[in-house]
Simulated scan of single mutants.
Amino acid sequence: MTPAVRLDSVTKIYGRSANVVRALDGVSTAIPSGTFTAVMGPSGSGKSTFLHCAAGLDRVSSGTVRIGGTDLGELNENGLTRLRRRRVGFVFQAFNLVPSLTVRHNVGLPLRLAGQRPNRARVAEILERVGLAGKAEARPAELSGGQQQRVAIARALITDPDVVFGDEPTGALDTVTAREILGLLRDVVHERQGTVVMVTHDPVAASYADTVLFLADGRIVDEMSAPTAEGVAERMTHLGAWA
């Protein structure tokens, strides 16, 4: 089966001459479809760069990135934009909702940007799935942080994407709400056979994943299957020395 996301010898370099930063250094990994993968590492390890390159938000300096069978390096900017709108969903720590739009219109925004008219029944179905039935006409400011993140997840799912990428999606939430959001992301995998790739600094959040990838100095230095919060936390304390 073709992996949902595949990176082969990916390097990402920022800056020039004396100010060069090698954010990713020959990263290779294949993320199977229908799985939940967490990406962890110390500050500056390359986690966010990994996510941005894997999702097509940033071009790699060398190597290849594929979503499904599509080589992102072969797409021009318009092609990348179309791929992100149709095949990729995003959930960010800051929610990134449009304050002036209702919940319904925020959820349908990716479809409108892709030139499609959102189906109200489909939007209502997604909102019910994330526990926001009855909130379609509310504005983001009228919602709690957890509810806003649920809107962001609904927005990520509205295009039925191949992969949902999360950048610290529970970082701004309290513990109880964070666990509810992580449960929703697990449901994306279990109920929809979707694929989730999430960057996090939280061992408890990582324990919801099927696999944890550990980054250090721009390289994948370890991998853990069936993670526990305790096991992830213990591994993180030795990551720098091990790397």
Rank of each mutant, 00 (worst) to 15 (best):
G89I: 11
F50C: 13
I31N: 10
G44Y: 02
V98R: 05
A30P: 10
N76S: 06
T81G: 06
A55S: 13
V91L: 10
V91E: 03
S61T: 15
L101K: 00
F92D: 01
M40G: 01
A54L: 12
S43K: 07
L80I: 02
F90A: 09
P42C: 04
S61H: 09
G69L: 01
H52L: 10
G34D: 12
M40Y: 02
S62V: 10
T102Q: 02
R82V: 06
T37Y: 13
S33G: 15
G44L: 03
S43H: 06
L97F: 01
T102K: 04
T64A: 14
A94Q: 14
H52N: 14
V98L: 15
Q93A: 14
I67K: 11
G89Q: 08
G46N: 09
V98I: 14
F92T: 03
V65D: 00
F90N: 05
P32V: 15
T29V: 15
T49F: 03
A94K: 11
F95A: 11
R85K: 15
H52V: 02
S43R: 01
R82G: 05
A94G: 12
E74S: 13
R82K: 12
G41K: 13
G68W: 00
G41L: 15
A55F: 03
E74D: 06
V60I: 02
C53A: 12
L80H: 07
F90T: 10
T64I: 04
L57P: 04
G34L: 09
T29I: 12
R84E: 02
L80C: 05
R84M: 11
T102Y: 04
R86E: 12
L57D: 06
D58L: 00
N76C: 03
R82M: 02
C53Q: 03
E74V: 04
V91W: 03
G68N: 11
L72C: 02
M40E: 07
G68T: 06
G89L: 02
L57A: 00
G79C: 11
D58T: 07
G69F: 09
M40L: 14
L101P: 02
F50E: 12
G46W: 04
T64R: 10
G44A: 10
S43W: 01
T35S: 14
L51H: 07
I31M: 13
R87G: 03
M40K: 08
V60H: 02
L75E: 09
N78L: 05
L80F: 04
P32L: 14
V60N: 00
I31P: 12
G44C: 10
P32W: 13
N76K: 10
F95V: 04
T35M: 09
D71L: 08
E77T: 14
T64Q: 05
N78I: 12
E74I: 01
